[in-house]
Nucleic acid binder design. Structure first.
Length: 292
DNA sequence: TGCCAGGGCTGGG
DNA sequence: CCCAGCCATGGC
């Protein structure tokens, strides 16, 4: 049984780690010495590009890597996803700008909690808040030699046992009572996040929106990044700006009309198209994405 | 410094 | 249905 670093080659084509791990869908990945380091579940993970795929490392034992392949969605045929996008100038430019960007399949609780914390926050700040939250409330997990202490994302049960003041100490401001209430509701069995993906998407969305602090946008993030619903389409300030400027340049659409548009125009993988739009808007004008 | 950030809720037209 | 104001906090 190997308790040190163990590694594995994960086959994948058209997989860009930087675009995927640094496009605002996940908040715990860091580029260090040319490799991406993060935490998946209760495991430290290091990833780097390799011929015909990804070289992955974690702390042993690991006789099975299905958990990581599932998280990375490395088996998804990206080519067919991109072919499902509408063939227009905006999406063609997005595809060029975001080559190799994948959607992850994240843990629904971590995803829900993270996006409750995301409202009117910049991505760098969301990362800071989540870093503090994991440090204060997460469980210590095995880390590679030379690395500092490492913590997983706190469970709903753990956060449910905390206080609003302790959460506010993680710099999350008015989001603290929302996170605490969500943690208590989930820990108490009021919402089975692990089964959400088996429901019709509208029903799943309805259950999420019952939570205080969770509206359409955050619900759609959880549905897309944590439950695998390919047609969930989060509309944040960047995506709204993209749609208005690139698809409705003459006059800004009424909210209802914009909702109808994103619901019908982008095809069977509209959530994927949304992430390409988001990343395209955020990175155009910049030379590199490696700002964190 | 003031503006803005992967929003949501509330109260008023 | 639509909109303005508000909610904390920090990067730029």
């Amino acid at each position: 049984m190997n308790l040190g670093i163990v590694s594995c080659h994960i086959p994948a084509r058209d997989y860009d780690l930087a675009a995927t791990l640094d496009c605002g869908q996940a908040f715990r990945w860091t580029l260090r010495d040319g490799a991406w380091e993060g935490v998946v579940g209760s495991r430290w993970v290091r990833l780097r590009a390799a011929p015909e795929g990804i070289q992955a490392e974690t702390m042993g034992p690991a006789d099975d890597w299905a958990w990581l392949k599932f998280h990375l969605q490395s088996d998804v045929d990206l080519g067919s996803v991109i072919l499902s996008f509408p063939d227009d100038a905006v999406m063609r430019a997005s595809v060029i700008a975001c080559r190799g960007l994948r959607l992850l399949r994240q843990d629904p609780w971590e995803c829900l909690a993270s996006f409750i914390l995301s409202s009117t926050k910049q991505i760098v700040q969301i990362r800071q808040i989540i870093g503090l939250l994991c440090l204060r409330f997460g469980e210590r997990i095995p880390a590679p030699p030379g690395s500092g202490p490492l913590y997983d994302f706190p469970t709903a049960e753990r956060l449910a046992a905390s206080t609003e003041a302790e959460l506010r100490d993680c710099q999350m401001g008015f989001r603290a009572p929302n996170l605490l209430a969500a943690a208590r509701f989930v820990a108490g069995g009021g919402l089975d996040l692990q089964r959400l993906h088996t429901l019709p998407v509208a029903e799943a969305r309805g259950k999420l929106i019952e939570l205080r602090g969770v509206g359409e946008k955050i619900a759609n993030c959880v549905l897309l990044f944590g439950c695998g619903f390919q047609q969930a389409f989060p509309v944040d300030v960047w995506v709204r700006k993209a749609i208005r400027e690139l698809y409705f340049p003459k006059r800004r659409p009424a909210p209802r009309r914009l909702a109808k548009f994103v619901d019908t125009y982008f095809g069977t993988h509209s959530g994927y198209a949304q992430q390409y739009l988001f990343h395209y808007m955020r990175t155009r004008g910049k030379s590199r994405v490696s700002d964190r």
